[in-house]
Design a protein around this nucleic acid. Structure first.
Length: 620
RNA sequence: GCCACCGUAGCUCAGCGGGUAGAGCAGCUGAUUUGUAAUCAGCGGGUCGGGGGUUCGAAUCCCUUCGGUGGCUCCA
């Protein structure tokens, strides 16, 4: 049995459903239900990483005895450990720590579990000077706690751990960062070291390769390289300047979005970027959202506010007429640009900005219509997202937060409606307790990109509150006044974030329908400039976004440039083509189609654009 | 906002135990007239993020400020 476990790289064992150290196999009862935790399982990997975190803490304590240890859990892609150290770690320290860890691993020290009383533990950690551990101990209710020792390093830990340090085959320390004790900014800033561990060297290398790929796809890097957008220090942080290429991508998305919304029964709106501050106090934003709003400005002695949200304006549209039940549901949509104050440290390219355009809409409906409207929104969302090549989602329902408005009954009704709609559409979801917005529960849809990373974009929020605050009503069949329910929804979330995600998803190689330049027409030599221009004119005339390259350069150079610019199609025009009045087409992935008919190509590319067919390509 | 690191030509970066800046790409000019990922040569281009200090002298050391990066927290 013992040999069997070791040969199979078992790390731990589940006895009657509880995770335990492997060593408990010596004290098992015959009727215990056991499950071996293998190194390759999710739980096994977590144990491996957690143990590696311990080994890292051990190494740090040996190298820097004055450091106090705090906590060091396994996380999704590795582990971290937070230390209280007066001077921060350096890159060189990381290497030293890695080396020390190798030594500890090589010595194959066993992880020994001991259970002691809380008082004993407090004494023990007091003697070690580990004040953070004592703080943690004080919060443990159980009187008995477990500690783990490995090669003389003792840590308070629930476990389980790997049998001995030698089982760590592949790890790497990745980065250093500041982190507050217990994530609270009022607490002391600790030094965090991130690392990761895998069962084999090969898997570690694959992960490191994945990190490289992530770097290559970074939308900030590609945004600069492909001249999509710019963020200028002179303009201000978190404010996006769309360059012609990016502006073109955005225009195509906007046109598509508007067309589809009209088809889906929405009416399009435009509303101002500022409004009187009073509007925002009436809407409740001032009470609940102030910390995210820019400071108000005085205009003719009246305070005005840059808008952080579009909803109060859409309410005004609703109120611009008397509404009857026959009018409902009303669906108002706007690409509404909002400004929100974000702390400087959180800004990140297009993904986290201070000014962004939401693909916003507000649906006003009756209680009876609510569920169906949510289903329609879900269908619409899936349609839009899949058109952009996103077919996998993580869906969350966020429930009532601590700070909220409205009645408990309404919150429950709304949450139920969201749940029902997801169930009806067979969309699997998870509950995110307490993560709703102050005015109502919501469905958040995270899209998964080609690298399987999840991005928060779509959101569908029920609001029983704002209709009440603004006292909007409709005349019912019964002749009485009724309060409509409002649904806020954004499908892409914000154009900025969505385009950022798109850039990373496609690694900058947009499908033809989205590509700023779809075809680059290039001449082989000066002799072919006339022919190239003729073909270019035809393409432009047929509505294809073409670029003419008649530079005095070799064709190889032109191809290289167009490939770097990730232009989907290149037309190569020389003697052969001009003589036969045909074209040679090269795709950015290198595929080549010699001497084909211009019309045939136009038909093909037009169809590709119209059907928005996705062609995912590997990064060069 | 907080902790750490970074900020040199349009871009990517070198120079940084102090002695008033350098490469490649891009740009411009010329030569070359080109067939599937870089033709050759010449030229122009930077108050080294801003401000202050130390020093005879600062891109280099110190302080401060503004940006960026990785995290913490928050979110579209």
């Amino acid at each position: 049995m013992k040999k069997f476990l070791i040969d199979n790289q078992a790390l731990a064992i589940k006895v009657n459903g509880d995770l335990k150290d492997l060593s408990v196999i010596y004290s098992l009862n015959s009727n215990d239900e056991i499950e071996i935790i293998h190194i390759n399982s999710k739980e096994g990997l977590e144990i491996l990483r957690h143990s590696t975190a311990h080994i890292m803490a051990h190494a740090v304590k040996e190298l820097f005895p004055e450091v106090k240890v705090t906590i060091g859990p396994a996380i999704e892609e590795g582990f971290y450990y937070d230390f209280d150290k007066e001077t921060p770690f350096t890159e060189e320290d990381l290497q030293k720590i890695e080396k020390k860890m190798q030594e500890i691993i090589k010595s194959r020290k066993p992880f020994i579990r001991r259970e002691i009383s809380k008082d004993e533990a407090v004494k023990l950690f007091e003697s070690l000077g580990e004040t953070y551990k004592i703080e943690i101990l004080k919060e443990i209710e159980d009187d008995k706690v477990s500690i783990y020792e490995e090669g003389g390093f003792i840590d308070l830990c629930r476990g389980p751990h790997i049998p001995h340090t030698g089982m760590v085959k592949a790890f790497k320390l990745l980065s250093i960062a500041g982190a507050y004790w217990r994530g609270d900014e009022r607490n002391k800033m600790l030094q965090r070291i991130y690392g990761t561990a895998f069962p084999t060297k090969q898997e570690l290398d694959e992960y490191l390769k994945f990190l490289e790929e992530v770097k290559k796809r970074d939308h900030r890097r590609l945004g600069k390289q492909l001249r999509l957008f710019d963020i200028s220090e002179e303009v201000g942080p978190g404010l996006i300047i769309w360059l012609p290429n990016g502006a073109m991508v955005r225009k195509i998305i906007e046109d598509f979005w508007k067309d589809e919304h009209l088809k889906a029964g929405y009416q399009l709106l435009y509303t101002p970027h500022i409004a009187k501050l009073d509007l925002w106090s009436k809407s409740g934003h001032l009470d609940f959202y102030r910390e995210n709003m820019f400071s108000p400005m005085q205009i003719d002695e009246v305070a005005y506010q840059l808008k952080p949200m579009n909803c109060p304006f859409h309410i005004q549209v609703y109120k611009s007429e008397l509404r009857s039940y026959r009018d409902l549901p009303l669906r108002f949509a706007e690409l509404g640009t909002v400004y929100r104050y974000e702390r400087s440290g959180v800004l990140h390219g297009l993904l986290r900005v201070r000014g962004f355009t939401q693909d916003d809409a507000h649906i006003f409906c009756t209680e009876e219509q609510l569920e169906e409207e949510i289903q329609k929104v879900l269908d619409f969302t899936v349609f839009i997202l899949s058109t952009f090549g996103f077919d996998n989602y993580e869906i969350y329902i966020s429930t009532r937060p601590e700070k909220y408005v409205g009645t408990l009954e309404n919150w429950e009704k709304a949450t139920f409606a969201l749940q029902q709609a997801l169930k009806m559409r067979n969309l699997p979801y998870q509950i995110d307790p307490g993560e709703g917005v102050f005015y109502g529960p919501k469905i958040d849809i995270k899209i998964k990109d080609v690298l399987n990373r999840a991005w928060q974009c779509s959101t569908i929020q029920v609001d029983f509150n704002i209709p009440e605050r603004f006292d909007i009503i409709y005349r019912g069949k019964d002749g009485h006044e009724h309060r409509p329910i409002m649904i806020h929804r954004a499908l892409m979330g914000s154009l900025e974030r969505f385009i950022g995600v798109l850039i990373e998803h496609y690694a900058g190689a947009f499908p033809t329908w989205l590509a700023p330049v779809q075809v680059e027409v290039m001449s082989i030599s000066e002799k072919h400039v006339g022919y190239a221009r003729k073909i270019y004119d035809i393409l432009i005339e047929r509505g294809i976004r073409a670029k003419l390259n008649i530079e005095n350069e070799k064709i190889g150079y032109k191809i290289r440039q167009a490939t770097i610019e990730k232009i989907p199609y290149m037309l190569i025009l020389g003697d052969k083509e001009a003589e036969k009045n045909k074209i040679t087409v090269r795709r950015r992935n290198g595929e080549n189609f010699e001497l084909i008919d211009t019309e045939k190509f136009i038909d093909f590319i037009t169809k590709e654009i119209k059907t928005k067919k996705q062609i995912l390509e590997v990064v060069q």
